[in-house]
Design a protein around this nucleic acid. Structure first.
Length: 463
RNA sequence: GUCCCCAUCGUCUAGCUGGCCCAGGACAUCGGCCUUUCACGUCGACGACAGGGGUUCAAAUCCCCUUGGGGACGCCA
């Protein structure tokens, strides 16, 4: 059997991390078994679906590296197809027309509830033999007894008694297919072999299986991935902060890091935490999936991102970092300097966003350097300034200006005056970078070069 | 209300067919080391089998109940 999986988002919002994770699982599963991964846009709700969201979702998928095969299928273009299938069901006696009003159905539900049962439609029109009419709906005739069961790839065997199900609407008055009908038709037509989707669909599964059975088609395999909860164990929502994929993109996360983190939420491969995309494809076989919901931990996500950031080639980082550098408002900066400095910042930043901010003091002109006031007061005392002045002279006397000679100049100065490095280091650092943190000073001064270094030291002394 | 799913450190998890687990790894937290700062790194500490019954020579691992959490019950998707 050839493996075909799908991701079927509804374009009523941006791609969120929950959806992203099921998409990733689906994609990995298909890739691992060398199958196909296809997309379907579930845009039958014309009220809430927009092209902007469709574009945004596709863009996020692309950014994450989840390439799909063929053109995405749009449900809104397939109403006629769904009607054909509904007609088949009507012809075979598996479905019937119903003219009950919403109020009437609501009453039936309340009655059932009053009896302590699950609210359902009572099957009033089953035997009335109603003819088609524009405002009439089509309902599925579900079996009177029995159970619907399926072996979930993640949760194992799940059974539902048909007593829990009612004669669901397949086609609305007006002729539009309902969600469950459209999904089944599409999955059949698209030859989907494995339906990997969110946990919230387990209750739809028996309904859909009933439609498959009525159609005389073997259902695909189902795998329901657990939901992602917020840090407080509640359903993920806006108050948990950024949750759309594009938000993480603008926060400076690496797509492979987001994928890595999301996959590990509910899946494991021994004790391994960091995976490349290739390793993921290699290891993800649809097994070892956790059936319990997981909480989203932004801190660990950042940590995973930091690991990927460090492992990446500096040249690649630079091109990814460029947009963030440009957002800094420098209005132009020395690209070569930035490029050469990347490796110094790789181990200290957790995101591209952070990295750009950390590099600002290095990249800005001396005149725009912002000083940390308390650091200046603490380190750039009269004595500190005297050291800075002396070091400026020492640097100017250098015939070769490279990392080693700069370092020697500093150490030479320290030794000659019989003082500790601590006496001059902080002052020099604040003078060069404006604050107390940052990479090794010799590296920074060398990269800055004699002219820029001199300008910074002069400005610091005059503070 | 009814049905479905879930239950190991604060969080993500290892623990697949019970003994190698008085439970391992990772994030976070705390402390040591490294270091010219801040990070990185490194070493260590803290920290969990929800509760109760069974089954068994032996249970985190199997069964049942309770509790807790989540989801679903639309002519929404």
């Amino acid at each position: 059997m050839s493996i075909v999986t799908r991701f079927a988002p509804s374009p009523t919002g941006h791609l969120h991390i929950g959806g992203a994770r099921t998409a990733i699982f689906s994609w990995l599963f298909a890739r691992h078994y060398k199958g196909q991964f296809v997309l379907r846009i579930e845009d039958t709700d014309t009220e809430r679906s927009t092209q902007e969201y469709t574009d945004s979702i596709l863009a996020s998928m692309g950014w994450l590296g989840l390439e799909w095969q063929g053109e995405p299928v749009r449900q809104s273009e397939r109403f006629a197809l769904y009607q054909q299938y509904v007609q088949k069901l009507l012809d075979s006696g598996h479905a019937y027309w119903c003219d009950c009003s919403p109020e009437e159905v609501e009453r039936m539900r309340e009655e059932a509830r009053a009896k302590g049962e699950k609210p359902k439609y009572n099957g009033k029109c089953r035997t009335r033999g109603l003819a088609p009419a524009g405002n009439r709906a089509v309902r599925l005739r579900v079996p009177d007894s029995g159970v619907v069961a399926f072996d979930d790839m993640i949760k194992g065997r799940i059974e539902f008694s048909v007593d829990e199900l009612d004669d669901m609407v397949l086609q609305r008055g007006g002729g539009a297919a309902t969600y469950n009908m459209a999904v089944v038709v599409d999955d059949v037509e698209m030859k989907i072999s494995h339906v990997i989707r969110g946990d919230d669909h387990v209750n739809n599964t028996p309904k859909q299986i009933l439609i498959y059975q009525a159609l005389g088609v073997t259902p695909p395999a189902f795998g329901h991935v657990p939901m992602i909860l917020g840090p407080d164990k509640q359903k993920l929502s806006k108050r948990h902060g950024a949750k759309a994929v594009i938000d993480y993109q603008s926060d400076g996360l690496l797509p492979e890091a987001l994928v890595n983190y999301l996959v590990r939420l509910g899946w494991s491969h021994g004790d391994q935490e960091i995976f490349s995309m290739d390793e993921l494809v290699q290891f993800f076989d649809g097994k070892n999936l956790n059936s319990s919901p997981a909480s989203f931990d932004p801190e660990k996500l950042l940590w995973v991102n930091a690991q990927h950031l460090r492992a990446k080639d500096p040249a690649q980082i630079f091109s990814l970092l460029l947009p963030y550098l440009e957002k800094l408002g420098l209005g132009g900066f020395d690209h070569e300097l930035a490029q050469k400095a990347i490796h110094l910042y790789q181990p200290r930043a957790e995101s591209l966003d952070q990295m750009a901010a950390q590099m600002l003091p290095l990249l800005c002109p001396a005149s725009q350097l912002v000083y940390d006031q308390s650091a200046v007061e603490k380190s750039l005392s009269a004595e500190g300034k005297a050291h800075v002045r002396a070091l400026a002279e020492a640097f100017e006397g250098l015939s070769v200006f490279d990392r080693d000679s700069v370092q020697q100049a500093i150490h030479g100065y320290v030794e000659k005056n019989n003082i500790k490095f601590k006496a001059v280091g902080p002052a020099l650092r604040v003078a060069i970078l404006g604050s107390t943190g940052g990479p090794d000073l010799s590296d920074i001064i060398f990269l800055l070069g004699p002219t820029s270094t001199k300008a910074r030291l002069e400005r610091a002394v005059s503070l």
